[in-house]
């Protein structure tokens, strides 16, 4: 038997790595991929908790998260394309018009 805390730890690790990717990387594509990573980590936690607690909500939630992640990835990439057309760059440190 695997302790449920193991799954939660794994989920946290995946999430943390995803966060590192978002905070650290300059390439927008990689940031978006890191966001997918974070969402995955969360899904692991949902499924694990649902299965250990016997609550179908865990599964349903995970399903919703996947859906939303897909939608968000699509829109995000579309934005990226539009932005690339405008600014010719995918470096987010160049995209800092909205400051002070």
């Amino acid at each position: 038997m695997i302790a449920p805390s193991a799954y939660l730890l794994l989920s946290a690790i995946l999430f943390g790595i995803g966060v590192v990717g978002v905070v650290t990387r300059k390439n927008v594509l990689i940031i978006l991929m890191s966001v997918e990573l974070m969402l995955n980590g969360v899904n692991v936690a949902f499924v694990a908790a649902g299965s250990y607690l016997g609550d179908p909500a865990g599964g349903v939630f995970a399903f919703m998260v996947m859906t939303v992640a897909a939608a968000e990835a699509a829109v995000g990439l579309a934005l990226l394309i539009a932005l690339y057309r405008l600014k010719e760059t995918i470096d987010i440190t160049e995209l800092k018009v909205l400051k002070w």
Partner: peptide, 17 residues
């Protein structure tokens, strides 16, 4: 204080984290 808002999203994400 204004320098907190660098405009780079990564910085904001760091603050959240």
């Amino acid at each position: 204080v204004r320098r907190l808002q660098g405009g780079v999203v990564g910085g904001y994400a760091f603050s959240l984290l």
